[in-house]
């Protein structure tokens, strides 16, 4: 029974399940390191997932779907930016509103476009994002099942490295962090707090939407109502668990993806209730946030609107 759960397919499904989390968590990182709380990740993922599926239905090309999803993510993020950066709306409230908005919008539009109650039509197999063929499944079935993944899986891992570089080694990264820690000082030094924060929020939207697209036209072949099922919030948890660091967040996502993979595989086989395994990421995040393991300290100006004197 132990070997039924812990085998190479567990590794494969951990990678698959972690990918949307990694993309969304990286997105959250750009926004939050710049000082803007982004609990709208969930809503942006939904917007991305729905747009990707819908555009693919009409164009037949999943890559156009992916691009459209990123466009949608940028638009939704711009709304969050407008509300919080320009009009100083409470960042949490604005994020919450966006989450509620994108429970409603896809359902409303799918009704109008496809006469369904919240789902898009099923895509044929050749219109879903293809797997990369790194190993021949006939000769190396195990390696193939682990490494033959969607290109977005590798993109997500690549983006972790890129983000680490951007954040710690570039002028933009330095400014982003400065704006998140001490916007007054950054402003005095001639950095436009508004522009940098907008940049962070917009990147955040594009990445979270990419995570959503992976769900609808990568892992699945259609959009269904509320298909993110809290993944935006798990990504946020992973971001905190990884202490707002790209590599830390990735490791947390892999761990949470692993927990989800185990929970799925344990269904009906082991006597530990599924619900308790699914709860672990949430409990751990609370523990870390309280500083009981390794304290997670948020960017100092996170959540505070900046008013230029």
């Amino acid at each position: 029974m132990f070997r039924d759960i812990f085998n190479y397919t567990l590794i494969a499904s951990t990678i698959r399940l972690s990918t949307p989390l990694i993309l969304a968590a990286l997105g959250g990182l750009y926004s939050e390191r710049g000082g803007v709380i982004n609990i709208a990740l969930e809503g942006i993922m939904l917007a991305g997932a729905f747009t990707a599926a819908t555009v693919t239905v009409y164009t037949g090309d999943p890559w156009i779907g992916v691009l459209a999803a990123m466009g949608a993510g940028l638009l939704v993020a711009a709304l969050h930016g407008l509300a919080t950066i320009n009009y100083r709306a409470d960042q949490v409230v604005s994020g919450m509103a966006i989450n509620i908005l994108f429970l409603g919008v896809p359902a409303l539009l799918s009704g109008a476009l496809f006469e369904s109650t919240g789902a898009t039509p099923q895509l044929p197999r050749d219109q879903v994002l293809p797997d990369l063929r790194i190993f021949n499944p006939q000769s190396f079935p195990k390696l193939a099942s682990i490494f033959n993944q969607k290109p977005l899986v590798y993109l997500a891992l690549l983006l972790v490295a890129v983000t680490a570089y951007v954040l710690y080694r570039t002028r933009f990264g330095l400014r982003l962090r400065a704006v998140g820690e001490n916007p007054e000082a950054a402003d005095t030094a001639g950095v436009s707090v508004m522009k940098i924060r907008y940049a962070g929020v917009l990147i955040s939207g594009a990445l979270a939407a990419l995570g959503g697209a992976y769900l609808s036209i990568g892992q699945n072949s259609l959009f269904t109502r509320n298909m993110t099922a809290g993944r935006g919030f798990i990504a946020l948890a992973a971001l905190i668990f990884g202490r707002w660091d790209p590599v830390g967040a990735m490791l947390a996502c892999l761990f949470f993806g692993f927990a989800e993979a185990i929970a799925i595989r344990m269904q009906g086989t082991v006597n530990i209730p599924n619900q308790f395994i699914q709860m672990t990421p949430y409990v751990l995040t609370m523990v870390v946030l309280a500083g009981l393991i390794r304290r997670a300290i948020p960017p100092r100006s996170l959540g505070i609107a900046y008013v230029k004197e």
């Binding site: 409603g104 919008v105 359902a107 409303l108 009704g111």
Partner: peptide, 8 residues
């Protein structure tokens, strides 16, 4: 139009 309009 569906009842989801309300959520919006």
């Amino acid at each position: 139009v569906s009842k989801d309009l309300v959520q919006v």
